[in-house]
Amino acid sequence: MNALRLGSYTFSSRLILGTGKFSSVPAMIEAVRASKAQLVTVALRRFNREQAEDDLFGPLSEIEGLTLMPNTSGAATAKEAVKAAHISRELSGSPFIKVEIHPNPHHLMPDPIETWEACKILAAEGFIVMPYIPADPVLAKRLEEVGCSSVMPLGSAIGSGQGLSTSAMVQLIIRESSIPVIVDAGLRSPSEACAAMEMGCAAVLVNSAIAVARDPAAMASAFAKAVEAGYDARNAGLMPRSGSAVATSPLTSFLGASS
């Protein structure tokens, strides 16, 4: 596999893992190891002395070669997201920030306007900005222009398991983007992750599908294989789909016989 480049960082793994929704920290750690992911997302939370064992920094820092990508979840505005990013950088020591601004707590759809504002500020401050966005090709170009290091369009709603329901729009984004396109959210099965990679995604970000699997580590490993297969298939050059049937009255008869 060629390296995935994000800012000045390179990664051999193209599977990014989310760390939420796992039954326990050890189950999450086991899944991260099985996925061979090198980039994982974490969220900022208030410290609670009664639940100090939930802190992830310690356990994650024991995994070699892992980079943390804090998200700004909880932020409903650009201002809040920028604040969260500053605190997160303090804690993670990594320039990565996943900008995630969803004002509606139910469907969690990202706010494109606040996201663009926040990304513009954070990219200018030197963050490696990775926005979670609706699958909108124009927004993707706008974010590229303000200096984002990738765009992360949603496959479908967070945690919905509806797969790549935005497939046509994601394909447009891939066609137009000069920065890596990473499908984030909504994937349910490894075959969907594979399809996203075959389509030309640079990576996929998976959380719920692994966290809620009966065996998260086994599912993480299955996703890792699927992502690798999809990436290899893309590079190998897929066979063209068979075209339409040949018309009964030929379209090219005006060209005469072949010379």
Binding site: G18, T19, G20, K21, F22, V25, M28, T41, V42, A43, L44, R45, R46, F47, D54, D55, L56, F57, L60, L68, P70, N71, S73, I87, L91, S92, I158, A185, L205, N207, S208
Partner: peptide
């Protein structure tokens, strides 16, 4: 005062 840590998140 806010004391913050990293927890699980996607």
């Amino acid at each position: 005062v806010e004391i913050l840590v990293f927890a699980g998140g996607g």
